[in-house]
Nucleic acid binder design. Structure first.
Lengths: 218, 218
DNA sequence: ACAATTAGTTAGACGACTCTTATTTTAGTC
DNA sequence: GACTAAAATAAGAGTCGTCTAACTAATTGT
């Protein structure tokens, strides 16, 4: 049996590896722990056959590690849907809650029942694909950050970073939700803000924010 | 912030104290840990102001401890209802699951939303009152075990022990569910089985089993 | 090529929770 | 009052997950 903390690390490695190789120092930042703590944990994860670490490739999930990680991500996102769609929480309140709930499912049967009542959704409320639905991996990798678009580009919001409650409130207030169509009107020089059009209104978005909005090319 | 283990101990103490004074040795059995482990934990619980222990009265929850315990029990039973009523699990499958879920609720708000969608039930699927609904404490204390009934007694099943999955399956197969009316027809001597009538059928129940069925006098 | 940043490692520690084994109290019984 | 059974305590240890401080190795920019 795996501990919750182990599951959290696997999930982190999984998510980080969608953006290139995972190194211990980054993992320490992500998990908000010190480097030696990560080193200890990687040792334990290795011993359990959940990851392989090498100087060259960094941290890689083994098949077993990947399976666990995907299960956790799936459960996390299913719970997020439950919290918004059924309990009626706001999309900025559900991430934290789901972080705990994801570890409290004991069997694939319960997970499936949950998916059943939710109607087998393909994404979480923030637009992230739910592993286990077709094309989840592919969608996860295809989108690009809005910050990388050029003036004149039009795009559809695919998903947004789900961890920062304040950011989510802000995005919702501007209508920057998954499926919304955005058009880049102007980009101020020197990494300045980006003027975008959404739902007929125009807003200036900082690079920071734009980097957290993933879009699919129009 | 309290750990899950601390919450589990408080819950155990709460439930045990409904049947008289709680002593460390019993608590160790209930929690399936060794006596020194319990002693350590009681020390920690005392330090946190959650319990008071004395030679004379055993372990008592403080106001703060009681509040926490009731919250946990309430969440546990709400999740059980969710698991049966909404996810469609069987009543023998939900206790374990709810044991984990109860610790994964971060705020009274989420708890309330859950109660809302469940229609503010008064009991869990096994008939145990949900703290926070009126008269919960009273109902919890009023019922008596079926094993203490006499020949000729008629009674309504109030609740059944919820921890043993096999027992629950067995009870369900006989129709021994909360709200069912039972009549004691015969009690074999020397602590022998009890012949009871339920839904027109007659069954012999061992003392062990009868002790786990709580009834309200007709 | 070398200084400077970044990454990783070693060593020692601590809190939470658990164990076993052994001993001491306490309570109950004859 | 003495003896036994049950309960509690003491002592010592181990795992998991975390820390800080100090040190070494690897990269990288100029």
């Amino acid at each position: 049996m795996l501990t919750e903390v182990v599951e959290e690390y696997l999930e982190a490695i999984y998510k980080m590896s969608l953006n290139g190789p995972v190194i211990a120092a980054r993992l320490a930042e992500w998990m908000k722990v010190s480097p030696p703590t990560v080193a200890d944990m990687l040792k334990r994860l290795s011993d359990k056959g959940l990851v392989k670490t090498s100087r060259r490739d960094g941290v890689k999930l083994t098949k077993k590690g990947l399976e666990t990680a995907e299960t956790m991500v799936r459960r996390h996102r299913l719970w997020e849907r439950f919290l918004t769609d059924i309990l009626g929480l706001n999309w900025d309140e559900v991430h934290e809650e789901a972080c705990k709930l994801e570890h409290a499912i004991s069997s694939p049967q319960v997970e499936e029942k949950l998916a059943d009542i939710l109607g087998h959704p393909e994404t979480c409320p923030h637009g992230h694909p739910i592993p286990g639905t077709r094309g989840a991996r592919k969608r996860e990798k295809e989108a690009k950050p809005l910050s990388q678009c050029s003036v004149g580009d039009e795009a559809i919001i695919e998903r947004v970073a789900d961890e920062d409650s304040q950011l989510l409130q802000y995005l919702a207030s501007l209508g920057l939700l998954p499926e919304a169509r955005v058009a880049v009107k102007e980009i101020a020089p020197f990494k300045g803000p980006m003027l975008v059009n959404v739902c007929g209104a125009q807003y200036a978005l900082g690079q920071e924010v734009a980097a957290k909005i993933m879009v699919k090319g129009k």
